[in-house]
Design a protein around this nucleic acid. Sequence first.
DNA 1: CAGGATCCCGCTAGATACTG
DNA 2: CAGTATCTAGCGGGATCCTG
Lengths: 146, 146
Amino acid sequence: MPTMTAAQKRAQAKAEYDAFLANCPSRQLLDRISDKWVALVLAALGSDCPHPDGAGEPRSMRYSELSRQLAGVSQKMLTQTLRSLERDGLLTRTVTPTVPVTVTYELTNLGLSLHGLMRGLKVWAETNMDDILTNREKYDTTGGAT
Amino acid sequence: MPTMTAAQKRAQAKAEYDAFLANCPSRQLLDRISDKWVALVLAALGSDCPHPDGAGEPRSMRYSELSRQLAGVSQKMLTQTLRSLERDGLLTRTVTPTVPVTVTYELTNLGLSLHGLMRGLKVWAETNMDDILTNREKYDTTGGAT
DNA sequence: CAGGATCCCGCTAGATACTG
DNA sequence: CAGTATCTAGCGGGATCCTG
């Protein structure tokens, strides 16, 4: 049926392009860090002083600590995020079989380096984001009417 | 009714946290660049040699050129992406009233600097992404079964 | 050629309830 | 305490049709 050949061609071209995108390392990285909670978990585990009592190893946090610090997160998303990060070797999950089971999370070197990268993003953002917001306002004011 | 006070408290806490997130510049930046097509438009406009014939100013591209180079994009998403980038002052939109109207897009300095940042991401990704993929496979193999 | 308007679908985040 | 399982609503995104 030559009727839909054109559509098929386009579908294939798109599929190939998608495959290209899927193979692009920067896209994979973006897909990873762009996740709302990934960024926050990284920040929580990589940042200093999540809790005031532990001065020695503050970057090791328990599940409930994380869920408290990240406030609005559902335990579904938190678990999901932690699992994917563990899967990628960005953090380690340690289960201690105490009476109520204890689970702690900690960044690996890879995770730490990613956290470092995120801070680079933060620097750029803090430097240029106000320019962007200004541009945005200007754009809305100028061309927004009617 | 004190019955739902707890729920209200949590809702408010979440709202505050969301507000905090919305104000965080790095989150805004992430929300911006994490967009699939934003990254690609930036790459297309910032990269060299999108088309082989124009050696002089390759970073100025027409709508149809972009839509061709980005393959799988729908014109809705392309337009939407371009508009938002223009709004943020990351690129300029130039309309030339020829017989069939001609529109060209070009990165601003801000857009170029963002593109530079993206290349930094790319470097990290290319350096570490294979480690991540290896970890991922290992994880799936080890803990995936039963 | 460049883009606006519209319909529609899939995915995913979130809430809820249950378990070891 | 630290999850898992299920259901649902919301919305991002694609396909299609139409205009200047």
